[in-house]
């Protein structure tokens, strides 16, 4: 439908995430080459993302209980 608006993909994955790509690159090639801690950090990041998303789901659930009681 929105053929002209795929700009969004570019905005998010091309521009906004650029610093994150650079960060990952820096982590991997940076001087103390140690992948265990990098993996751990990535694990934290995934964990936090899951937490935020789950938190949002729970928020919605709680609110729906309040609104429909």
């Amino acid at each position: 439908m929105h053929t002209t608006t795929h700009i969004g993909l570019l905005v998010i994955f091309g521009v906004v995430l650029l610093p994150v790509y650079v960060m990952f690159a820096g982590w991997l090639v940076g001087r103390p080459r140690e992948y265990r801690t990098v993996a751990l950090t990535v694990g934290y990041m995934i964990g936090f993302t899951v937490l935020i998303v789950a938190g949002l789901a729970v928020t919605g659930l709680v609110i729906s209980l309040i609104t429909t009681v």
């Binding site: 929105h2 608006t5 795929h6 700009i7 969004g8 993909l9 905005v11 998010i12 906004v16 995430l17 994150v20 950090t41 934290y44 990041m45 936090f48 993302t49 935020i52 998303v53």
Partner: peptide
Amino acid sequence: VHHSPLAWDIAVITLYLVLTLTYLTL
């Protein structure tokens, strides 16, 4: 995410929060 600026916001805010929490934890 292709088109809604609000979807971009959600993405960036989540990213920001994740980065900050990771930073704080480390």
